[in-house]
């Protein structure tokens, strides 16, 4: 008897069986009580042949069971099938909320600076004139000191006009090196219009260490601007004036709408103004008791709403301060 052939014929018969009945018939033929295999197993007398035949029996039984499962599954699928079922009907409504775009941008900024090894600070918004202006070396005639520009609570107390007081808090808080970014709300007495709101968010970076240079400031801001706007952006610096930095510069990032060719968004200059920056003024170092000959530093401040508007193509600031879910749910 060619048992190899027997086995392959049996396997083929299982595979060929298209219904349960056919499979039962094939099973009876190959593995039934009267089948040649069973008969041979009953009559076998030597151990080796017995083991071989038994192994064939086991394999065939397994193949039968597997095929039986397949046919059962096919039967079930047949009963379940429903051509009228509509997969395009929407699924269960799962409530989906979202973080405000300002929060999303805040986190992007935080993550970028964490990657650069900076600490994140959230400082107080109601500030003393001393921390908001004096220690930052604002001249007595600086226009920001005017109650027309700044919200006063009394002669000595203001709503911070930028996140810069954090520079003083951080330098007073611990000795250098300092690498920190402060994020939060600031206030200016701007009338409300399409691009102004008296409350806005800023991020303020400060690095104080030995041997920091203006080139380091340029490199750091290039990195941050590319993180915020894309790797293809260019950054340039324009000389400017701020009381607490010297030299002072305004960073511009190349316009993403026109790629620097000039368009309405960038007022046809190819550049977008991003805020202020500069090397920490020696007066500020002296105000916190640091020796400007030993330490140098750079600082920068950028408006978060502006970043958000540019990233998301929002012409106006209003949607960022509106509770309208039609706006918020886009994010």
């Amino acid at each position: 008897m060619d048992w190899e052939k027997y086995e392959s014929t049996a396997l083929d018969s299982f595979a060929d069986a298209g219904t349960r009945e056919e499979l039962t018939t094939a099973h009876t033929a190959a593995l039934g009580r009267k089948s040649e295999l069973k008969t041979a197993l009953r009559e076998v007398r030597d151990r080796r042949t017995g083991m071989t035949l038994n192994a064939i029996r086991v394999r065939l039984e397994e193949a039968f069971t597997a095929r039986e499962g397949e046919l059962e599954r096919a039967d079930l699928d047949e009963r379940l099938s429903d051509d009228a079922f509509d997969v395009t009907v929407p699924g269960d409504e799962i409530p989906v909320g979202q973080l405000h775009p300002t929060t999303q941008v805040r986190r992007l900024i935080e993550d970028t600076f964490l990657g650069l090894g900076y600490e994140i600070r959230y400082d107080r918004e109601v500030e003393t004139v001393e921390y908001n202006f004096d220690k930052l070396a604002f001249e007595p005639t600086h226009p920001s000191r005017s109650p027309r520009a700044t919200f006063f609570l009394d002669d000595d107390t203001v709503l911070r006009t930028e996140t810069s007081p954090s520079q003083i808090h951080s330098m007073e808080g611990k000795p250098p090196p300092i690498y920190m970014v402060s994020i939060g709300r600031c206030y200016r007495r701007d009338a409300i219009d399409a691009t102004h709101y008296p409350i806005f968010h800023q991020f303020e970076g400060l690095a104080v260490d030995r041997g920091l240079t203006l080139a380091d400031l340029k490199g750091t801001l290039l990195h941050v601007m590319r993180a915020l706007f894309g790797e293809d952006r260019r950054v340039r610096f324009r000389t400017h004036f701020f009381p607490f930095t010297e030299p002072s510069m305004e960073p511009d990032v190349s316009c993403g709408v026109c790629g620097g060719e000039g368009c309405r968004t960038c007022r046809y200059s190819g550049w977008l103004e991003m805020g202020g920056s500069g090397m920490v003024d020696s007066r500020v170092f002296q105000n916190v008791g640091l020796d400007p000959e030993q330490w140098s530093g750079f600082a920068f401040g950028v408006g978060i709403e502006r970043v958000t508007q540019l990233r998301h193509g929002m012409a106006e600031i209003r949607p960022l301060w509106s509770p309208d879910l039609r706006a918020l749910r886009q994010f």
Binding site: F113, E119, P177, A207, A215, D216, T220, F237, P247, S248
Partner: peptide, 26 residues
């Protein structure tokens, strides 16, 4: 120094601070 810096602004390269201490975390 600022007078020099503003006239050379475009030629200043983009570099990173050399760090000796790291402490960035939430």
């Amino acid at each position: 120094v600022e007078e020099i810096a503003r006239f050379r602004m475009d030629q200043v390269p983009f570099t990173y601070p050399l760090r000796r201490e790291m402490f960035g975390r939430l």
